[in-house]
Simulated assay, not measured.
Amino acid sequence: MSDHGGRRGQAERDAITVEIGYALCSAAFLAAVVCGAVVGPVFVFDVPDGVRRAVLAVGAAIAVVLFVARVVSVLMRFRPGAQPSQPGRTRPDS
Rank of each mutant, 00 (worst) to 15 (best):
F43Y: 15
A63D: 02
V47N: 07
G59Y: 04
V44E: 15
G50N: 11
D46P: 09
T17E: 15
G6I: 14
A23Q: 07
L75R: 09
V68L: 09
T90M: 10
R91F: 07
V64F: 11
M76N: 12
V58Q: 02
G88E: 12
S94K: 07
A82W: 11
V74Q: 00
G21Y: 12
A57D: 14
D3F: 11
V55Y: 01
G59T: 04
A69Y: 12
Q10M: 15
S85W: 03
V74I: 02
V72N: 11
H4Y: 13
A54N: 14
G59V: 04
A23C: 06
A23H: 09
P84F: 02
G36R: 13
V68S: 03
P92C: 05
A37Q: 12
A11C: 12
G81R: 14
V65H: 03
R77L: 01
R8I: 06
A61R: 00
V64E: 07
F29E: 02
Y22L: 02
C25K: 06
V72Q: 15
G88A: 10
R8K: 12
A69S: 13
V51L: 15
S2G: 09
V47A: 08
D93C: 03
D49W: 12
A57S: 13
A15G: 06
P87G: 11
V55E: 01
G9W: 10
I62T: 09
R89C: 09
L30V: 07
P48A: 15
R89Y: 10
Q86A: 14
L30M: 07
D93A: 05
V47G: 01
P80K: 00
F78A: 02
G59E: 05
V65K: 01
V55P: 08
L66Q: 02
L30R: 00
V44A: 12
G59D: 05
T17F: 13
V68P: 04
R53I: 04
